[in-house]
Each structure stands twice: as structure tokens, then as C-alpha cells.
């Protein structure tokens, strides 16, 4: 199995996630999509740990760290969402327009 196939799979998942991040109205779905993108990156790491130039298990170690950070990110993201929802009583991303100058 060439490494390119795994990389392509990662790219596909990443792009689907990216599309979701950019278009989904629901902020929870945006968080989902971010998780998907992180997973796509993990596939790359693991694929290189098997088929890389100096292939070894270190790639898996980094995947572990990524999963950990992603879990923390999901928890904090959901918490932020709650706070926002309490203040604005909506969870739709396009309703948050305070970035406008």
C-alpha cells in the first residue's frame, strides 16, 4: 500500500471537514467538523509512522497528544458555546457578528 493513498484519504476527510467549518450554521456542527479535520491529520501522522522516511512509532505518540488536545478543545469549545448560547440564546454561527468593526 503506498503512503499516498492514506494521505489522499486524509486530504479528503480534511477538506470535507473544512467545508463543514465554513458552511455549517450550527456552531456544534462547526466543532464536529473541526474534530473531523483533526482526525484527518491524525491519519497522516499514523501513516507516516508506518511508511515514512524514518518510519517508527513516534508518529503514534504524536497522535496520542493530538487526541488529548482535541478532547480538551472539544470540552472548552462546548463550554464556550454554552456561554454564548446563554448570552445570545442562539447557537448559529452566522448570528455572531461582533467581529464587525
Amino acid at each position: 500500500m503506498p503512503v499516498s493513498s492514506y494521505l489522499a484519504l486524509g486530504a479528503i476527510l480534511f477538506c470535507v471537514g473544512l467545508y463543514g467549518v465554513l458552511t455549517k450554521r450550527n456552531a456544534v456542527m462547526v466543532l464536529f467538523s473541526i474534530e473531523l479535520m483533526l482526525n484527518a491529520a491524525n491519519i497522516n501522522l499514523v501513516a507516516f509512522s508506518k511508511y515514512g522516511l524514518y518510519a517508527n512509532q513516534t508518529g503514534q505518540v504524536f497522535t496520542l497528544f493530538t487526541i488529548t488536545v482535541a478532547a480538551a478543545e472539544a470540552a472548552v469549545g462546548i463550554a464556550i458555546l454554552f456561554a454564548l448560547y446563554r448570552n445570545r440564546s442562539t447557537a448559529e454561527a452566522d448570528r455572531f457578528q461582533s467581529l464587525k468593526g
Partner: peptide
């Protein structure tokens, strides 16, 4: 583009 929506900003940066 400057509509204050983070998704639009993300699209522009993409």
C-alpha cells in the same frame, strides 16, 4: 466580506 461572521473571514483566509 467585512460582515463580522467568522466563517466568511475563514473563507477569505482559505
Amino acid at each position: 466580506i467585512q460582515n463580522g461572521q467568522a466563517q466568511t473571514y475563514a473563507l477569505v483566509s482559505l
